[in-house]
Design a protein around this nucleic acid. Structure first.
Lengths: 319, 319
DNA sequence: TTGTATGCGTTATCAT
DNA sequence: ATGATAACGCATACAA
């Protein structure tokens, strides 16, 4: 492998001049520039990017932490991030964590070790203090509303969205409303739960813990929810399902179980994933690709900002 | 930022000893090891990984080229790759290409520049010769059957699978069989087309170009296929649809259009994506996660091998 | 078991 | 406009 030293020798100039040519500096005599260019061509030279990284202390790489890449929610987020990354000539280093804290910490360590210039965490598992410790080493961007002012965030207001959706169902005549979430311990789940409790109290509705289902992450998870509901004496008449995959699974399971949608059970999904369109599921559109764009730009700029993104109810056939 | 030189000073040893401690070498006196460990702790030292990369000439990073990360086919492939990457302590650098050759070439360039130790191309757009030129710089692994012996590959036999599926439908009584593919120019599409033509000839069936639909990549694409079929005088009675997303879209559109499945139209999907299960779509299971595993291991080993992966017909309700 | 010296390939500073 | 030289931070061959 030839390096700039070799090029310098071949072209009869110094390494600095080679570097200048390589990086399109002005103030290089055309004659010498040509000589360098010729040497580059003759030697089939390729820059060793690791040397650049070391010298500059930057890598033009940004880390992306997400639990699963094969869930539409995260895939869409990633798509948005990718598009901006390409635009700004950054590369993405992927950390698929399966919600394991240790892997998230590994990503943070990469920031510390300067392998990445910034880190985007699409779904956090570790403590805030762990994040805080790593803030010194580069920008960290989160996809949730933390009320600390030390990190950039792009988020939706899970509390308000949930509360509004519950009221929407209430005004459609529903009194027994349940919901399905992914992880019980997730940051958004906590906010949704508090919205649910406030709603229940506000409208004086019965507080039935059986109406809350967790571990609803993918399409297959719908079946068990419907099985459970079928056995209930007073099942919910409406369900908020925090992703359209699970909503689709529930819808399909209901069709099999001859539960009429929306008459016997109303469903509101989340995200407006492609499946919700063809299955005609009423859903709350979260502009994930746009959020992804935002996350990247925040990671890139380094300046701290906190942006709330609006969502949009798409009324289709399941309410 | 403190470096090993600083540590050496703090611990009263040489940089090599520090390096030895850092990398768990034997033959370091416990006393000095402790001193170094203390210095590491006191200084909150972190290794600069870029220096390691430069010094070693390797990065423990492997590139992954795929057109879209939000299609289940590629997401599942990526999942398999990710799992192995984690296991072997490698990081993945993601290149989302949107099928643009220039981006694929950029990934190849990263190999040349030593930013990645190997490259996995999940779906190729560039010419073989372009691949060949970059083979000097590190292992390149493909997810298709090229009959060159210079790269590792993990693949399924698209020709045989397609031919077998066509015969399967034929023996179920179908004579007018069509198919839907993604990109007309993709490597697999070419093989599928030749299987189709051979099948048509073998069984003396009419060769109707209208039975071939391309640009069927996602769930939304089903609608236009059904619209088109509805207008045909002699529509196909069976359809091979090369991904379950499109198959699901077609199935749904048929339900709306009151086309009875499988009586009026039989459908075989591909990949056994989650959606095919809940929609009860007969599909050809391609073990994508397993293929992903394989691709990574091939990239890691550097030894060239070519492995065919078997597929599996899952008979459900659409044939 | 430990230390010295050199290499890895660039970029950046400074002098000319 | 150009060149010499010092970072950048670590690994490693070699000497001791």
């Amino acid at each position: 492998m030839t390096n700039i030293k070799d090029l310098a020798k071949m072209a009869g100039v110094s390494v600095s001049t080679v570097s200048r040519v390589l990086n399109n500096y002005p103030f290089v005599k055309e004659e010498k520039r040509m000589a360098v260019l010729k040497a580059i061509k003759d030697s089939n030279y390729q820059k060793n990017i690791n040397a650049v990284h070391l010298s500059k202390g930057k890598t033009q790489m940004i880390g992306v932490v997400l639990p699963f890449s094969d869930y539409p929610y995260f895939a869409l987020l990633l798509k948005g991030i990718s598009k901006q990354a390409y635009k700004y000539n950054y590369k993405l280093l992927l950390f698929q964590t399966d919600y394991m804290e240790s892997r998230e910490i590994e990503a943070l360590k990469m920031l510390k070790q300067k392998q990445i210039d910034a880190l985007i965490i699409c779904s956090r598992t570790c403590n805030w203090s762990t994040i805080e410790e790593h803030l010194l080493f580069g920008p960290i961007v989160l996809c949730e509303n933390v009320n600390k002012k030390l990190v950039s965030t792009t988020f939706v207001n899970h509390y308000k969205i949930f509360y509004d959706a519950l009221e929407y169902l209430y005004h459609k005549g529903h009194q027994r409303i349940g919901y399905c979430i992914g992880r019980k311990s997730g940051a958004s789940s906590v906010k949704r739960n508090s919205a649910y409790r406030d709603f229940i109290n506000q409208y004086n509705l019965p507080d039935n813990h059986d109406y809350i289902f967790d571990d609803c992450l993918e399409i297959d998870d719908g079946e068990k929810v419907v099985q459970y509901i079928k056995k209930m004496d007073t099942p919910p008449t409406a369900l908020l399902v925090t992703n359209d995959q699970a909503a689709a699974g529930i819808l399909t399971a209901c069709q099999k179980a001859k539960i009429s949608i929306p008459d016997e059970l109303a469903i509101i999904g989340f995200n407006n994933e492609p499946i919700s369109k063809i299955m005609n599921i009423t859903t709350i559109e979260i502009p994930l690709e746009k959020i992804g764009n935002n996350l990247f730009l925040q990671a890139l700029s380094g300046e701290i900002s906190n942006q709330e993104i609006a969502v949009n109810l798409i009324e289709r056939g399941t309410v």
